[in-house]
C-alpha cells in the first residue's frame, strides 16, 4: 500500500488491468450517450449495431434548437447558477473565517448547529419552504432558487472552514500586530490564501445548481423559467419519445459542464484533497 513499493510485476499489472476495465465500464454510459445522439430513432434499440454509429446524424443536434428554446433554457440555467455561485462566494468565506479564525463565545455551539443542519433532508423543509415562497409571491420566479445561496449553505461553509483551519495563525498575528482589524486580516491575509478552497466551493456550487432538478421542478412554473434540467425532462412528457433528440439535448446539456470540469479539474481535485471534505 505504501507509495514506495508494490511487490512484483503481477502486483503492478493486475491492478492496471482492473482499473482499465473499470474505467471502460464507467465511461460506457457517457460514450453511449454521444453514440445514441448521432443515430436515427430506428437504430436506438438495435444494440447489435454496436457503439460506433453507421452514419453520423449531426442534424439531431440542430433539431434540438427547433424542439426546445435551448438558448433560453441555457440562459435561465446560467443565470440561476451564476447567482448561486455569487451568493456562495460573497457570503461563505466570511462565515467560514469567523468559524475558523476568530475566537468568540458561542462559536463552537454555532458550528455544531451548522454540522447538524447537514443532516436535514431536503424533503423535510420542502413543503414549508414552498408555502413560504408562495406567501411572498415568489413561486414561479428564479428567486427561491437563488436567495438561499446568499445566506450560506452549510456544506460549503464546512468545506471552507476546514480549509481555513490549515492556514497558520502566525500569518494573521503578523497582520494584527501591524494594527489590522478582523476585516482587514480577512481581506489581506485569509482571502488570498483561501483561493483553492473558494475555487472548490465555486465549482461545487456551479455543478450542483447547474444540474439541479427538484428546485426548478418546484419553483419554475412556466417554460419562460425552465432550466435545462426541466427542458430535458419535458422531452419525456410529449406524446412521442424522441430518443435521439433527447440524447442530443443531453449531450448539449453536458457540454457546458464538461468544459467547466476540464478547466477546473486540477482546482477541484486539489480542493477536495486539501479541504475539509475529509471530515
Amino acid at each position: 500500500m505504501g507509495d514506495k513499493k508494490v511487490t512484483g510485476r503481477a502486483g503492478r499489472i493486475i491492478p492496471f488491468i482492473l482499473i482499465t476495465i473499470l474505467a471502460l465500464i464507467y465511461l460506457f454510459p457517457i460514450i453511449l450517450m454521444f453514440s445514441t445522439s448521432v443515430r436515427t430513432n430506428d437504430e436506438v434499440f438495435n444494440t447489435s449495431l454496436g457503439l460506433w454509429p453507421q452514419e453520423w446524424h449531426f442534424e439531431n443536434y440542430t433539431n434540438v434548437f427547433n424542439v426546445m428554446p435551448y438558448w433560453q433554457y441555457f440562459g435561465n440555467t446560467m443565470f440561476v447558477t451564476l447567482m448561486n455561485v455569487l451568493g456562495t462566494v460573497v457570503c461563505t468565506p466570511l462565515i467560514a473565517y469567523s468559524l475558523s479564525k476568530i475566537q468568540w463565545r458561542g462559536r463552537n455551539v454555532l458550528f455544531a448547529i451548522i454540522m447538524s443542519t447537514l443532516m436535514i433532508p431536503y424533503t423535510v423543509t420542502m413543503v414549508p419552504m414552498y408555502k413560504m415562497w408562495t406567501k411572498v409571491g415568489l413561486t414561479g420566479t428564479f428567486w427561491p432558487l437563488i436567495i438561499p445561496a446568499f445566506f450560506g449553505y452549510p456544506f460549503y461553509i464546512v468545506i471552507l472552514r476546514q480549509f481555513m483551519l490549515t492556514i497558520p495563525d502566525e500569518l494573521m498575528e503578523a497582520a494584527e500586530i501591524d494594527g489590522a482589524n478582523s476585516l482587514k486580516v480577512f481581506i489581506s491575509v485569509i482571502l488570498p490564501l483561501s483561493k483553492p478552497g473558494i475555487a472548490t466551493i465555486v465549482i461545487f456550487s456551479f455543478m450542483s445548481t447547474f444540474s439541479d432538478f427538484l428546485g426548478p421542478l418546484l419553483y419554475a412554473n412556466s417554460s419562460a423559467h425552465y432550466t435545462l434540467s426541466l427542458g430535458l425532462y419535458s422531452y419525456m412528457n410529449e406524446h412521442t419519445v424522441d430518443w435521439v433528440g433527447m440524447m442530443a439535448a443531453t449531450a448539449l446539456f453536458m457540454i457546458p459542464i464538461m468544459i467547466v470540469f476540464i478547466f477546473c479539474q486540477k482546482y477541484l481535485m486539489d480542493g477536495i484533497s486539501t479541504s475539509g471534505l475529509k471530515g
Partner: peptide
C-alpha cells in the same frame, strides 16, 4: 406538465 400547472395555481400566479 400537469404538475407545473398545479404548482402555478397554488402559487397564485
Amino acid at each position: 406538465d400537469q404538475q407545473k400547472v398545479l404548482t402555478g395555481i397554488s402559487g397564485g400566479n
